[in-house]
């Protein structure tokens, strides 16, 4: 329904507009002065100053693989993350555990686990879907490479980034 917006009743000084322009100029000048004197500190000079200390707990950085407290791979290559990954960044080649392992008949482990970081959108669905709590988004954000091959994180790299995640972790962080 159409309705009429009441126009504010302006005083004479507001109508001639110039005093308000001067007031606006004063405000912008105040910001300029504070920036020049270093009173305002909003911007971070990125490569020199990093915001690692300010990263929240629920930060979604690069996806990584973790081992448990016994040093065992948590991933059992069920490939759920590979299927759910929206940009299809994950490629898993399932494999058996070595036959001399105690768990050889119980679990499997990935032979190869690749995450193409030039595709990853950091959505965290892989972490959410993983039944074994094996894949976690950690706080690494500066993922760089000089070519496409560099941007693919292989299994070793993923375990190196991920490290150990001991015990049961409450992964359903409501804020994540």
């Amino acid at each position: 329904m159409a309705y009429t917006v009441r126009r504010p009743n302006l005083t004479f000084w507001e109508k001639i507009y110039l005093p308000n322009i001067v007031a606006g100029l004063a405000i912008t000048f105040k910001h300029l002065r504070k920036m020049l004197q270093g009173e305002t500190k909003v911007v971070m000079q990125y490569p020199e100053e990093k915001w690692d200390a300010h990263l929240p707990e629920y930060y979604r950085g690069a996806p990584t693989l973790v081992t448990d407290e016994h040093g065992r791979e948590r991933c059992v290559s069920c490939q759920l993350c590979e299927f759910i990954c929206p940009p299809r960044a994950i490629t898993i080649t399932p494999g058996e555990l070595a036959s001399d392992s105690k768990f050889a008949k119980v679990e499997k482990a990935p032979k190869a686990f690749e995450i193409d970081m030039s595709r990853c959108i950091y959505c965290g669905l892989c972490e959410e879907v993983c039944p074994e709590q094996a894949i976690y988004l950690r706080k690494d954000y500066a993922v760089t490479g000089e070519n496409r091959a560099d941007m693919v994180h292989h299994k070793d790299k993923l375990y190196e980034l991920g490290g150990t995640m001991p015990g049961l972790v409450h992964k359903w962080n409501p804020e994540k």
Binding site: T28, H31, L32, K34, M35, L36, T40, V42, V43
Partner: peptide, 10 residues
Amino acid sequence: RVSALIQDRL
């Protein structure tokens, strides 16, 4: 530069 400083950027 001036626009950035006015808007609290660099």
